[in-house]
Write a protein that binds this DNA or RNA. Structure first.
Lengths: 216, 216
DNA sequence: TTCTGTGAAAACCTTCACAGCT
DNA sequence: AGCTGTGAAGGTTTTCACAGAA
């Protein structure tokens, strides 16, 4: 009873996780349409490039209201704005990266994050010394300064690329310092409170999983 | 009718994709148990470290037969072997990497793949020249030699880390050369025939998606 | 008693079919 | 005519509840 009420509270109209995920994909596709000066798009063609069925796209959008024009399609700009709002973020979300090793440094140099409105404020590494040279403008800071930094800069998101056995410890610190969402590249499942979201990207698991689908 | 028959053909007893995915995770957890000389594990504790519910773990395993001992749990070694068999692979699956840029090079140096039984035979890059120095023992080869190499070495899996606008072209070549599974780090959805499996890992999309779950 | 294996129920997600705008 | 919006149907995955083996 109470649960059902909470689920339907106006603040969060229960958007399925999978829908939220696809929204990010639609967003990326729409941005490319904008670059190509396309101003209107049908559910069929947008779904096509996003790799989903048109009905699914429409159902996904329906969670947020009515944005299309029947007989015509969707206005690209309107859609982009609506998804931006739906995903929250008045943009430029601050992020920290932990673990500036092999993979971590590559992620630091990866320009895709900035382009999508995230700013990596700093990278932390256990082996970093004061005065470490910046990588692509991002300072590399000794890890023991992490908690304070996260607190002070109101950082809510972190990218984790530390070795397996360090992961849980770092996560605990991050959570204690106020981080609410973690993109975890460390090859281990970490424990967090219910109100913290973790997305695991375990490269070896992904490959292993894929290998199931190759025929001999 | 026919579809239903095909679905139940003995060769493939219809394992849900999500189950297959979790199998890889269980495998990783079990390996750690072996390192710690744990010989028996209950569905509850294995599920705990894998981040799933015990019933789900049992349902997943049930697809392949009965492996547990009631009142006791599962034999770790037996389980590892059963999962290895289930995931197929007599191990050491050959893989190629395409795109030895920023992210690609980091992936090349990532040791997790080898450890899980994959061998990166070669990396291809459009800018590579003959006689390029090896990275971690893996040769970097000009991209125009890719198709031939894939064909000759019977490569069935590829890791893709090329820029967005190059992705589809490379995928088409890979598929034509016989690749059946692609781990795609390029920030775009690619088109493939039904019998080719693609797993997209779009870093920016993952972050964007996560940001939905941070509260202000 | 403890813990697995499993039908049945519940929850969740996708697709269909078509009504309703433009 | 063309394309969106949506209730209802269909499918899949997860969870429950408990029977049954060690």
């Amino acid at each position: 009873m109470q649960t059902s009420f909470m689920k339907e509270s106006l603040a969060t109209p229960v958007i399925p996780k999978k829908t939220v995920y696809r929204l990010s994909i639609y967003q990326r596709c729409l941005q490319r349409l904008i670059e190509n000066d396309v101003s209107t798009v049908s559910s069929e063609s947008l779904a096509g490039v996003a790799g989903v069925k048109p009905t699914q796209l429409r159902k996904d959008l329906a969670h947020f209201g009515q944005f299309g024009t029947r007989g015509l399609g969707y206005n690209v700009k309107t859609l982009v704005e609506m998804i931006r709002d739906a995903l929250g973020r008045n943009r430029l979300q601050p992020v920290v990266l932990v673990g500036a090793g092999n993979l971590g440094s590559a992620l630091l140099r990866y320009s895709g994050f900035q382009k999508e409105g995230f700013e990596i404020l700093a990278a932390f590494d256990i082996a970093a010394k004061r005065g470490e040279p910046r990588v692509d403008g991002v300072p590399i800071i000794p890890q023991h300064e992490m908690s304070e930094f996260v607190n002070e800069h109101d950082v809510r998101m972190a990218i984790l690329a530390v070795p397996m056995n360090a992961a849980q410890g770092v996560v605990d610190q991050l959570v204690a310092a106020g981080v609410q969402a973690i993109l975890n590249f460390s090859p281990t499942v970490v424990d967090v409170p219910d109100d913290v979201m973790v997305k695991n990207v375990d490269l070896a698991v992904e490959l292993e999983n894929l290998s199931y689908f190759v025929r001999n």
